[in-house]
Amino acid sequence: MVGYFLKRLAMLIPVLLGISVIVFFIMALIPGDPAQAILGSYATAENLANLRADLGLDKPVFQRYFIWLGNLLQGDFGSSYTLNRPVIDEVLDRLGPTLLLAGTALVLCSIFGLLIGVITAVKQYGWQDRFFTLIALLGISTPSFWLGLVLILAFAVKLNWFPVSGMFAVYGGGDLPDLLYHLALPALTLAAVATGVIARLTRSGMLEILRQDFVLTARAKGLSERKVIWHHAFKNALVNIVPVIGIQAGFVIGGAVYIETVFQWPGIGRMLVTAITTRDILLVQGGVLVVATCYVVFNLVADMVQHLLDPRISI
């Protein structure tokens, strides 16, 4: 078990290297002079020359990559020209809110998705199945940025149940209830799409498992349906769904970009959008690298959970 985890941990290194290579090459796509692009059109000649030397633009591309990577490993992600502060500081400040939002959404979509998936499978062709299948279809077809606006209109503007935007109340906020009060709508919105995906996969996974021989055995033992479904079938279905949840984490983190924009959530997503429109390339690069790393680590955890659930898996 420990051996497996160590092996899996070691496999992280090539993946992270690959991510760095891809980001490096995407940044190399920038047309024209990267220094110019990074510093903007008002940069002085002196600054441009300095940055070129910093980035090693006079050196061959391989060497440049390793210099860049070396800087990253030392925590030097460069400096944001719009904010005038180190990229890493800004990114880490905003990572917390993003992880909180995405994490909550992921928990919500896992719970709802699995529950809906099991109900629709067990009540196949019943009204529950039809109703929730429709909900799941709506979920995967809804533009989340639109859903966010609609929810704001309904629950914040009309009903006044939830705040319109932000993470804390401007005056007197800052405690946990205030945070949850602000978190509810964005987290639900963000969870909607992934709920649909997980529900659909859980349904087909459960239908597959419920036909297997060991379910017949469980029933032949006289076990209650609750036990047959949750203890026997669901546990087996979960083994295949956990990696899907890992992948959904990627969609949830990506979707957070919209939701943070719609709800004015102070996370990395909103920072990225602003940085792209202001051409703050180093800030984009830093944000993408850090979030991608979080995603990779999360998938590692999902793999390990699957391993813990299923005694048969070994590499």
């Binding site: 993946v15 690959g18 991510i19 290579v21 891809i22 980001v23 995407i26 940044m27 796509l29 920038i30 047309p31 984490a249 990627g250 969609f251 983190i253 990506g254 979707g255 970009v257 990225l272 959008v273 940085a275 792209i276 429109t277 051409r279 390339i281 984009v284 690069q285 993408v288 979030v291 991608a292 995603y295 990779v296 998938n299």
Partner: peptide, 25 residues
């Protein structure tokens, strides 16, 4: 396939954002 795997190691939307950032809106 290893290169494809690397692309998939990214959160989908984030990769798109990085590309838009490089190419411009």
């Amino acid at each position: 396939m290893r290169s494809i795997d690397m692309l998939m190691a990214f959160p989908y939307m984030l990769l798109a954002l990085a590309i838009v950032a490089a190419l411009g809106p």
